[in-house]
Simulated scan of single mutants.
Amino acid sequence: MSNMPALKPERPFFSSGPTCKPPGWSPEKLDTRSLGRSHRSKYGKARLKYAIELTRELLGVPDDYLIGIMPGSDTGALECAMWTMLGAGPATVAAWESFGNIWIQDAVKQLKLDNLTTMTADYGEIPDLASIPQDNDVVFTWNGTTSGARIPDTDWLEPGRKGITINDATSAVFAMEMDWAKLDATTFSWQKVMGGEAQHGMLILSPKAVARLESYDPPWPLPKLFRLKKGDKVNTEIFEGATINTPSMLVVEDYIWALEWAKSLGGRSAMIGRANANAKIVTDWIEATPWLRNMASDPALRTNTGVCMVFQGDWYESLPDGDKAAVPKKIAAKLEELDVGYDFNGYRDAPPGLRIWCGGSLESEDIARLLPWIEWAYEELKAGRL
């Protein structure tokens, strides 16, 4: 048997969602004064509003944009934007991984939009976004959570374009700069880059998005969870802490703790720097490892959060397809058994491979310690000992 590496990660949490808690987190550090209180109490609403205000500060969201806490995680927030704003004109939905394809299915099978164009690309690539007409509404995913491919820029979105842009940014915010001037509805969940808990999403609306909501009523029924208007106007109370349904105040306090932690480091720039440093460790290792390749072949498209890789080489290519798919599963399972690394197998619908989360809540040393263990497990598997 080849020698095992000497050091294990101190925090072996490499899942791409929910992600690793920030360093120093413990449940005892959460402010629990809002627990057992109504979320509609003065104190409860103040805490919800504080979470919104901290989000605005850390992300640099313009003052005239609205930020609301939504049910159903990023999925609920994104679908709310689609169901309330699409259908007023031509639309394009672009996808290059699993979740983007869900938004395509929403547009095609549920909303059944007229004058709809869909664009797709293989895992690790993105479609020709520059070909999207500027009059079209567009739905896109800033960072492919399951493919490791992100948009390199927003040059394909013209300033003052007629269509609205709906941006699923759930594994991008707090790790990549958002071009707010070109974004009308942006969504994310707390369970991604901030290491928060699931079930709550954020919906950020530009003045143009608000104008669309107030001037347009879709032809389909809207469930209560998607109703953003009171009469003909946007219900601004939703964006001041009065949530549509009951949130978990424990989860809210957890998110607030993570925001305050990020602020103490230096805010958004510090979080982006941490993600960049973490991702560089992994991408440099992939480049130096002959039996791996980055799922995103173009360096300009490579993410700094969920870095995805697939296997290559003579030994791997000689395996039957079923055995190829088993390689990353066996490596991930063995290292979980040894408490070295949890949940870094690739996404179930993606090509077989590994996916290591590199967002700012992880420590670089833990990532660096994981990689020799993957090499060890691969050699053990190749030798028939795993």
Rank of each mutant, 00 (worst) to 15 (best):
A81T: 09
G267S: 08
E375D: 11
G231D: 09
I67R: 04
A185I: 06
S131V: 04
G341A: 07
D232V: 04
A107F: 06
L259R: 08
P18C: 14
S361E: 09
A77M: 02
P22I: 13
W376H: 15
F13L: 01
K230M: 03
S364G: 08
E287F: 07
L250N: 12
I244K: 00
V61C: 06
R385M: 10
S147Y: 00
P18A: 15
A209S: 03
M70P: 01
I356N: 08
I151C: 09
E375Y: 02
S26M: 14
S98G: 06
P290V: 10
D339S: 06
R227F: 07
W291A: 02
A262S: 13
G72T: 00
F14C: 12
G160L: 04
E79Y: 00
R369P: 01
S215W: 06
D153N: 12
D339W: 07
F99R: 14
R33Q: 11
F14T: 11
Y316W: 06
T243W: 09
V108A: 10
S38V: 02
T186P: 01
K162V: 00
P22W: 07
P90E: 13
E336M: 13
P247R: 07
Q199T: 14
K49D: 11
T146R: 12
L362H: 11
K330T: 15
K21T: 11
S38W: 04
H200L: 14
A77K: 05
D217R: 15
R47Y: 02
L203H: 02
G100E: 02
F13G: 05
P247K: 06
E125S: 15
M178D: 00
F344E: 14
W315Y: 05
K224C: 02
S26I: 02
A181D: 12
A95G: 05
D343N: 12
M1H: 05
S364L: 03
G160N: 02
L386V: 13
Q312I: 09
L30H: 07
S98W: 09
K208V: 09
